[in-house]
Write a protein that binds this DNA or RNA. Structure first.
Length: 276
DNA sequence: AACGATCCCTGTTGGC
DNA sequence: TGCCAACAGGGATCGT
């Protein structure tokens, strides 16, 4: 699942293939990818001939500057990934968008389950989109614990649900939220408003550590269907996960069986002994 | 306003 | 062994 470490790894892998290059051609193989484009007909015409500027990221959104003031948005959803491929290389069956910026290479968006999307937005469209309502980036703009706690005050929603709320904090998904809560020693079903400042500090520290570790390993690749780096390699973080996907297995810290449960419809994993 | 439920998708998994 | 229901989940939207 592409979460912040996977999207940041993807961003870094795309920089050499895209930055400063002209958009020679764009091909949309699945129109569902354009469902967040206010007028889908704008997508290709806005990109044609434009030069790609900086590649930015906010939470799980990849934001690419194109032309004078347009923003090319990518979200990888649940099963999306980007690849930098030789144009002669076989095209994966689930390729949805192809971008040619070079005589012999192209950038491909592959997304079997099509939860991902892309769009080219004007400043006004960007300001009106959910991207403008994202919370601070969990990697580059993590607020002080006091601020995180004040925004959680009075909230009865589960702590995990709040961590997954991209308006509260942008970047955590189901895997890293479970890992953060384990590292912090807190059960995800605790009402967010019940956390003490010390506990919120532990969550904040855990976010920094978990995201840094995930990024260092190039993200988490779960299986063949999931995320891969733009060069086709798998992320190496899977074997470092403490709880996610480890239901019934012994806790790496204390040996107690990891519990798998549901929190607001999301599969969740925790150690009943290490987390309170 | 806050919160939970539902929907969109399709490859994989697990039970019978 | 083969079939099929259940499952996975980010974000938008809707109902309470």
């Amino acid at each position: 699942m592409p979460e912040l470490p996977e999207v940041e790894t993807t961003r870094r892998g795309l920089v050499p293939a895209l930055t400063g290059r002209p958009v020679l051609a764009v091909e949309v193989l699945h129109s569902r990818m354009l469902r967040r484009q206010p007028d889908p007909a704008d997508f290709v015409t806005r990109l044609a001939g434009k030069v790609v500027g900086r590649l930015r990221r906010r939470g799980k959104f990849l934001l690419i500057e194109v032309g004078e003031d347009l923003t090319w948005v990518f979200h990888l959803g649940m099963s999306g990934r980007m690849s930098v491929s030789d144009r002669a290389a076989p095209v994966h069956i689930h390729t949805r968008v192809v971008v040619q910026t070079d005589a012999c290479h192209e950038v491909r968006m592959v997304d079997p389950r099509t939860f991902g999307f892309t769009a080219v937005l004007t400043p006004e469209e960007l300001a009106a989109s959910s991207i403008a309502r994202l919370g601070p980036d969990a990697l580059t703009a993590l607020p002080p614990a006091r601020e995180m706690a004040s925004k959680a005050a009075g909230r009865r929603v589960a702590t995990k649900t709040l961590l997954l709320d991209q308006r509260y904090l942008a970047g955590l998904g189901n895997i890293y939220a479970d890992e953060v809560l384990f590292q912090a020693g807190i059960s995800g079903d605790r009402p967010a408003g019940s956390l003490t400042l010390v506990e919120m500090g532990a969550i904040r520290s855990a976010i920094r550590r978990v995201l840094a570790d995930g990024l260092e390993h190039g993200g988490t690749s779960l299986d063949d269907l999931a995320y891969l780096l733009p060069d086709g390699r798998a992320g190496r973080h899977l074997e470092y996960l403490s709880v996610y996907g480890r239901g019934g297995k012994p806790c790496r810290r204390c040996g107690a069986p990891i519990v798998k449960e549901r929190i607001n419809g999301r599969s969740s994993h925790r150690c009943p002994a290490c987390q309170a």
